[in-house]
């Protein structure tokens, strides 16, 4: 389903991703953990080509892009449509209601007629538990509600992969659960997901696999219980002991 080979990303001289290889099956949920600055966000953004990788080959489903060669805008646009990103700070469109936010992609990008798109958007808002907030503007919603609209907006394009970049880390603790629940449901439905998060309970409960990233490479990967209970690499052990002190596990 997803195959990544020797993915590199440089910002000027700074090499942030130093060769990432990864294969994912359809329906897998993967959690990426790692210290700040290790390149987790950059990695996700490369999958959605919000950053253009410097080198490497990415395949999602039937499409493959080799970033060692120049890539055209058309290629980027087509490739991007296979995945959708949920952002740490939601990035909802503030001048549109919740419903309009969700409708925007189907109407403008896919050219679906408004009535059909509206029905679909309504159904998606219902799915994330916000049917009654359809006509509210983002500023009228709590952080957790905004993030759930963000998830619905991403889902509206029927991506093959959902990418989550610390979707709950900007939220007040009491709002984290409602967002994680939506993500859990998605995973249970068989959505392929790559999730950067430090919510260890979510990782243990939902992830098929956990990747530990540090210094731009995947240092260790494995089943959540193995990574969390018996990490093999010293760097993983150190990182986990650091975050377990802050009772995230």
């Amino acid at each position: 389903m997803i195959s990544i080979t020797d993915l590199h990303k440089k910002f000027g001289k700074l090499e942030v991703l130093k060769g990432i290889d990864l294969k994912l099956e359809k329906g897998q949920a993967v959690v990426v953990i790692g210290p700040s600055g290790s390149g987790k966000t950059t990695f996700l953004r490369c999958l959605n080509i919000l950053e253009v990788p410097s080198k490497g080959v990415i395949t999602i489903d039937e499409q493959t892009v080799d970033f060692s060669k120049p890539v055209s805008k058309k290629q980027v646009n087509a490739f991007r449509k296979q995945s959708a990103m949920v952002f740490q700070h939601y990035n909802l469109f503030p001048h549109m209601t919740a419903l309009e936010n969700v409708m925007e992609g189907p109407v403008i990008v896919q050219g679906i007629d408004k009535a059909t798109a509206r029905k679909k958007a309504q159904a998606l808002l219902e799915k994330v538990g916000l049917a009654d907030k359809a006509d509210e503007y983002p500023f009228q919603l709590s952080g957790g509600q905004q993030q759930r609209v963000g998830i619905a907006r991403a889902l509206a394009l029927e991506p093959k992969v959902m990418l989550f970049d610390e979707p709950t880390s900007a939220l007040d603790p009491e709002l984290v659960g409602e967002v994680l629940q939506v993500m859990k449901d998605l995973a249970a439905e068989g959505m392929t997901m790559v999730v950067v998060t430090h919510e260890m309970r979510f990782a243990r409960g939902v992830a098929d696999e956990v990747l530990f990233m540090d210094g731009g490479v995947i240092v260790e990967r494995g089943k959540p219980e193995d990574i969390f209970s018996h990490p093999k690499e010293a760097r993983t052990q150190q990182f986990l002991s650091l975050i377990s002190n802050t009772d995230a596990i």
Binding site: L50, K81, H89, N91, F93
Partner: peptide, 10 residues
């Protein structure tokens, strides 16, 4: 982030 949100929905 607004540009990125627009990009990510294609």
């Amino acid at each position: 982030g607004q540009w990125e949100a627009a990009n990510t929905i294609g």
